[in-house]
Design a protein around this nucleic acid. Structure first.
Lengths: 205, 205
DNA sequence: TAAAAAATCTACCACACAGTAAACAAAATT
DNA sequence: AATTTTGTTTACTGTGTGGTAGATTTTTTA
């Protein structure tokens, strides 16, 4: 076994542990939120001791930011994999559906609308901000294409369409529907998409 | 001055201080969120010492719950004051507009979607839950009336319309529009309402 | 104005949690 | 096998904050 392959094996193991930590952090974040998540929680869940976490992530903020970055990377990968020929709205819907499903499966919501402190912490993380800007730029183009194609309302500013879009990925209505309605995940997603696209009002005429 | 009027004067002063505390808590909650708000913050802002706060509210949770209750009472009052002859959707829109304006003026969002802990804390507060249930019951009836009147989509469950409604009162899109767009509050509100009612998609045909 | 009562504040406690130093164990290297 | 190196853990520190006891001031009553 060469030095190189040994190193890569080590790195592989290291990466595996890192993913396990991120998985645990993601689960706990999704269930308890940032402030109630302690580093001891994460260490217990992943089966390591707290100091070992700090070999991988230099702080709690860093750990959470990395979890969010992994989520964004997943979104980017999903978006990149969509057939180029799909209509703009179809792409938007597909990604939103993906984000909702991630969340309903115990994952994190896209937007950490949760609290100002988390938002501030993330905006201080360059790696995170870079990814947000990239994704945002692509989605902005898709929205503009959707308008041109006559799929999206021209009278709404791009901003409004986009921010409403992001907001749907962390919409508390999803949580409440899961808690208090008898719907399954697919029904919840379909209704949320329907409200986002067509609104709740009956079109007159 | 009789004993009775003295007592009522005292009570009045007490009530005034209590409102001042709630005002301060509301401002701080709206800006920093629950977890970053400390009782020392509130005491400083209102110009009292911390122990004095505890003469009015037995805990931080209690203080925050009372702030939310005051907000709900405001909503209830607003709803009660709406002319009975207004169409259902008009009532819904008026209340939603009111809630958004409160928030844009530095008040609290209706739904504490912020974090699971706050939600749990509130659901343990009977006074809060009672008000939520009452308001929810009335809004449910308005939604049903709106469907009957042909204003709201019949194919959407009441749940979906209602939870989406609540979610709009704490929609992060509002924050982002305020931060990153050049719109004034009225424009933001109009666009948010428009998206809720009619969606972002162009109606085909 | 003196005594009693109420309100308010200073100074503190207890606890939870992020982060770390140093002892300890395991692996790799010779 | 001996030695170094790497990785892990136990046990701790420091800080921030919710909450409180007791001193202190203010107000009320006589």
């Amino acid at each position: 076994m060469s030095i190189l392959s040994k190193l890569s094996f080590k790195d592989q193991a290291f990466k595996l542990r890192e993913d396990a930590i991120l998985d645990a952090a993601t689960r706990i974040l999704a269930s308890k939120g940032f402030d109630l998540m302690t580093m001891d929680d994460v260490a217990l869940e992943v089966g390591l001791s707290k100091p070992s976490l700090y070999k991988h992530f230099k702080s709690k903020d860093d750990l959470v930011a990395e979890a969010m970055i992994r989520l964004l990377d997943g979104a980017q990968t999903f978006l990149d994999a969509l057939p180029r020929e799909h209509a703009p709205t179809r792409k938007l819907v597909a990604l939103l559906e993906w984000a909702m499903r991630v969340r309903l499966d115990g994952g994190l919501p896209f937007l950490p609308s949760t609290s100002p402190q988390v938002r501030d912490m993330l905006t201080r993380n360059l790696r995170y901000v870079t990814r947000v800007l990239k994704l945002n730029g692509q989605l902005e183009k898709i929205v503009q294409a959707g308008k041109k194609a006559g799929e999206l309302r021209m009278d709404l500013p791009d901003d409004v369409i986009l921010f409403s879009y992001y907001a749907r990925t962390c919409d508390p209505a999803v949580d409440y529907l899961r808690l208090y309605s008898k719907m399954n995940n697919d029904e919840i997603i379909q209704h949320m998409l329907s409200v986002y696209l067509d609104g709740v009002a009956l079109p007159q005429g």
